[in-house]
Every structure is written in structure tokens, then in C-alpha cells.
């Protein structure tokens, strides 16, 4: 196992982690501020990817496609917040889960109705395609490096928004005491719509960015949604910082586990058995991580409440 391979795998883990962060940030924000479990977050990821694929098909521009993904997901988020989600804040989590699960079905069949059952084409723009050579002779795809940078920048921007702006103060206040900030004259329903749209836009951005190297198809959001839930449970529900650390932990565990566990077991088993056993164990690696974190800290790494 060479040094180059290890560095490349760490970069892969980071890239996977920052994309998970874009999903998890919106999910944790919505739960933290509104106390809502939104299963339809994966559908917003899909909306972003489909909007990007459609606009890239019409215009040929990847930047316009990203813009379209952000706007389409934010708009879809704002609409479902005003039409459906708003009625769920006062109800218990079971009603929220049922209603947002229904939204998954509506989005999936709606997308199929508009775009058909076959996957769409969305490609990396020419100026970001192909590998670059990093110091040490490591060949790494430029697009994945770009994803890492974009993810980190979005993380920084979110931190600045929450910590340094008036909106951020309102969001933090809303997490602590929603009656009080309503009494202070903040339009709480507008704030909720805004936060929901922001979370949706992040999911849409992730969908479009990842869609360029994956398959843009109906149902693409649900596997990511499950991982995003693991991330926010590890990081502590409601904490953006927790989502960031949790996403990187999950990304690295998942990527490195899949590579190194089979190698590790080859020391004590036959290669075929090691491959089979190692990859099976690697696929439950992130859940073992989650269990370990929860035993150590039942509210997650940065969670304030149980």
C-alpha cells in the first residue's frame, strides 16, 4: 500500500465528507431551528440535480446549471414549507415523518412525470475535467478537488452567516426560544421559510455538484439522506459545527474503511474471504462509528440537547 494511494484515498474521503456536509447542514439547521424531521430533504437534492441537468442541456453552461439548481431547490423548499411543512411544526415527529415521506413519493413520481424514467445526462464542464498532478506525483481529478474547495467555502460562508449576521442571530435565537423572538417582533414564519429555503438550496447545490459525476435519476436522494441523518446524529442535532465534523468523519470512515479493512483481514485470512468479510464490515463501519459516538456522548459530538 503506497503513500500515494493513501493520500488519494484521504482526499476521496474528504471530498465525500464535504458533499455530505452540504446535505447535513440543511437538515440539521431545519431540525435545530424548527424542530422538524424532514425526510424530503433527499428529494430537494434530486430537484437540484434534475434542474442542473435540464439547464445544462438547454444552455450548455455548467455555472447556469448550478444557479438553476440553487434556485429550483430553494423555490421547491419555500413552496413545500408554506404549503405543507408549516402545518407540521406543532405536531409530533410521527406526523412530520409521515407527511415528509409522502412528499418523497410526490417528488419522485412528479419528477418521473416531467423527465421520464431514464437517467439524465449531466457532465463535468471541460475546464474542470481530467486529472491534475499534485505535489508528490499524485494524480487526482480536478473536479473532485474543486468539490472539496467549494464545500469548504460553503462551510465557511455558513459559519459567517450564523455567527456574524443579523439573520444568524435570529436563527440562533429561534433555536433557543421561538416564543421570545416572536414577542420581540421577529416575523417567525418568514424566518422559518427562509431557513427552510436555505437548507433546500444547499441540498440542491450538493445534488447538482455530485450529479455531474454520478447518475441523475429518480430516487438518487434517499441513500444520501440516510447518510446525512447519520452525520447529524454523530455531530449533534442542530449543530452546524457538528455536521461539519460528523460529515468528514463519516466520509473518511466510509472511504478508508472500504479500502483498508479488506487489506487488514488479508493478513489473517485467505484473500477471497478477506475481501468478502472486509467489504461487508466496511459497509457497516459508519454505523459502528455512530454507535461508538452515541455511547461516549449520547447527544452527539456537539449536541446541546438529547
Amino acid at each position: 500500500m503506497s503513500f500515494i494511494l493513501i493520500v488519494e484515498q484521504v482526499l476521496n474521503g474528504l471530498q465525500f465528507g464535504v458533499m455530505l456536509f452540504l446535505m447535513a447542514a440543511g437538515l440539521t439547521l431545519i431540525f435545530g431551528v424548527m424542530g422538524l424531521i424532514n425526510l424530503a430533504h433527499g428529494s430537494l437534492y434530486m430537484v437540484g440535480a434534475f434542474a442542473a441537468a435540464a439547464v445544462a442541456g438547454w444552455t450548455g453552461s455548467f455555472l447556469l446549471a448550478l444557479l438553476a439548481a440553487l434556485m429550483a431547490a430553494a423555490l421547491a423548499g419555500a413552496i413545500i414549507e408554506m404549503v405543507v411543512i408549516r402545518r407540521l411544526y406543532a405536531t409530533d415527529h410521527l406526523d412530520q415523518v409521515l407527511a415528509t415521506f409522502a412528499l418523497i413519493l410526490v417528488f419522485s413520481e412528479g419528477t418521473r412525470w416531467v423527465f421520464g424514467s431514464f437517467p439524465l445526462f449531466l457532465d463535468i464542464p471541460d475546464y474542470l475535467s481530467g486529472p491534475v498532478t499534485l505535489p508528490g506525483g499524485i494524480q487526482y481529478p480536478l473536479y473532485r478537488l474543486t468539490l472539496i474547495v467549494v464545500g469548504l467555502l460553503v462551510g465557511l460562508g455558513l459559519w459567517a452567516l450564523i455567527e456574524r449576521t443579523r439573520l444568524g442571530i435570529q436563527i440562533r435565537a429561534g433555536e433557543n426560544d421561538r416564543e421570545m423572538i416572536a414577542a420581540l417582533g421577529v416575523d417567525i414564519s418568514k424566518l422559518y421559510t427562509l431557513v427552510f429555503a436555505l437548507g433546500a438550496a444547499l441540498a440542491g447545490l450538493a445534488g447538482a455538484l455530485v450529479g455531474a459525476i454520478q447518475s441523475v435519476q429518480v430516487g438518487m436522494g434517499e441513500p444520501v439522506l440516510i447518510l446525512a441523518f447519520v452525520v447529524i446524529v454523530i455531530g449533534g442535532i442542530g449543530s452546524i459545527k457538528g455536521a461539519f465534523i460528523g460529515a468528514l468523519l463519516v466520509g473518511l470512515t466510509d472511504t478508508l474503511g472500504g479500502i483498508f479493512l479488506p487489506e487488514l483481514f488479508k493478513l489473517v485470512m485467505s484473500p477471497a474471504a478477506a475481501t468478502s468479510f472486509g467489504s461487508s464490515l466496511a459497509s457497516i463501519g459508519i454505523y459502528l462509528l455512530m454507535a461508538a459516538v452515541l455511547i461516549w456522548r449520547p447527544t452527539g459530538l456537539f449536541g446541546a440537547r438529547a
Binding site: 476521496n12 471530498q15 465525500f16 455530485v210 454520478q214 438518487m220 441513500p223 472500504g258
Partner: peptide, 9 residues
């Protein structure tokens, strides 16, 4: 959906 690790191998 992500095969970066396998492609590196």
C-alpha cells in the same frame, strides 16, 4: 454511487 476509492485502487 461514488467509485473514487475503487478507481484509485
Amino acid at each position: 454511487t461514488d467509485y473514487a476509492a475503487e478507481i484509485a485502487q
